[in-house]
Design a binder for these strands. Structure first.
Length: 102
DNA sequence: TCATTGACGCGTG
DNA sequence: CCACGCGCCAATG
């Protein structure tokens, strides 16, 4: 069965090791979908219940968490990252330290 | 078919 | 650091 775009994306996200993060653009590139960073966000928004995809390890290229600061999703992502030792300072991650480099 | 929309990214000032 | 603009492209109505 030929993998769909979303399946490729999930595959890449699943490969991000705990304690590391990747940007939407990076995930798009690695999934063979260059310049479709926005599509990555959509794909993650459609994750079925009970999945095991670490969507929270995907953030903006700037290190910013994509959700509005203070929102429930924002807080959930922040704590999930911090649980893995990823520091979130002022709504952002220090990419220089936590960026996933395969 | 055209217009709008986004969990984006990059350049300018 | 902030504001703005523009490119990008699949999905949606």
């Amino acid at each position: 069965m030929e993998p769909t775009r979303e399946q490729k994306i999930w595959q890449v996200v699943l490969a991000i090791p705990p304690g590391h993060v990747a940007s939407y653009g990076q995930v798009a590139d690695m999934a063979g979908l260059a310049r479709q960073a926005r599509f990555v966000g959509k794909a993650l928004g459609r994750l079925p219940n009970g999945h095991s995809v670490p969507w929270f390890r995907v953030i903006r290229n700037t290190g910013q968490i994509a959700f509005q600061e203070g929102s429930e999703t924002f807080e959930r992502q922040k704590s999930l990252l911090e649980n893995e030792g990823v520091e979130v300072i002022n709504g952002r991650v220090a990419m220089s330290r936590f960026r996933w480099r395969p």
